[in-house]
């Protein structure tokens, strides 16, 4: 009976942006030392990525398409991120949702609606819903840095595809990580574009999968511009994120990630 409702677009985008960042940053990471074991390689890739990731910032514009057998809906948004904790997202379309925003800081999440002109802190009981009826569960996205911190990683395969090397990394959550999945399998190209992320339950059954459908060069680097989260267990349920523009490593004032900015945008 708990309905899907949570206003945490910020988190969703945060994840996507941060993972974009992290995968992009793989470029700056050292090439994996070829002589070590796959486990150490995977760790090295991610460790380097994390080290480089901290302090990073971004600005982006994007559209989310939620598809269901009987309807489809699009939401356009602008997002700012800084480091692995802070993010701010604001809806720019459709008209009725313009100005709706979500701010995520280290320990909390706030949402703002111009309709009521209020900022509301989201309680834990509401953290568990799928977002706006999309195929992203807040659980997957509320802790963007979790994929790095709360998992142990393993490089399981390297293959060639379209002239690129593709690393397949298996991520298994730590014992006390707030993650329900049994494992996640991430495929990353050597130019650090994420190709897919698959979510398996604890019996090893695939539950949902995010696929990269389009890759373009934005802000001077290849970026996944269209990604689709597919619900494996329900037919014709998917959500797409289409990235229009992105600027990496920009200067963002501290005031961006504040409740007052959430309420009264200064940008």
């Amino acid at each position: 009976m708990f309905k899907s409702l949570l206003q945490c677009s910020g988190l969703l985008l945060c994840l996507i942006l941060l993972s974009l960042n992290s995968h992009t940053l793989l470029a700056q990471a050292a090439e994996p030392p070829t002589e070590s074991t796959p486990e150490i390689q995977a760790k090295a890739i991610l460790k380097a990525a994390i080290d480089n990731w901290r302090g990073m910032s971004s600005y982006s514009e994007m559209t989310m398409r939620i598809h269901r057998p009987d309807w489809e809906r699009s939401v356009s948004m602008r997002g700012w991120t800084r480091g692995d904790k802070d993010s701010l997202v604001r809806v720019t379309a459709p008209k009725k949702d313009i100005g709706t925003g979500t701010l995520t800081l280290d320990k909390g999440m706030w949402t703002f609606s111009p309709k009521v002109n209020r900022v509301i802190k989201v309680p834990s009981s509401m953290m568990n819903q799928s977002w706006m009826g999309s195929d992203f569960s807040n659980k997957d996205i509320s802790k963007a840095d979790e994929i790095v911190h709360s998992y142990s990683h393993k490089l399981t395969a390297i293959h060639e595809q379209d002239g690129h090397k593709v690393y397949e990394i298996e991520a298994i959550p730590h014992e006390d990580a707030a993650v329900v999945w049994g494992k996640q399998v991430i495929r990353v190209r050597d130019d650090h574009v994420m190709l897919s992320e698959a979510f398996y339950d604890q019996d090893g059954i695939l539950v949902k999968r995010m696929d990269t459908l389009e890759i373009q060069e934005l802000d001077g680097r290849p970026v996944a511009t269209r990604q689709r989260m597919l619900d494996i267990e329900e037919e014709d349920h998917w959500t797409e994120i289409i990235l229009h523009t992105v600027d990496f490593n920009i200067e963002l004032a501290d005031s961006v990630f504040t409740l007052s900015n959430l309420r009264n945008p200064r940008d």
Binding site: K107, G108, S124, A178
Partner: peptide, 10 residues
């Protein structure tokens, strides 16, 4: 303080 806490448990 109304902050969300979460943890995985077996």
């Amino acid at each position: 303080d109304n902050n969300i806490v979460d943890v995985g448990v077996r």
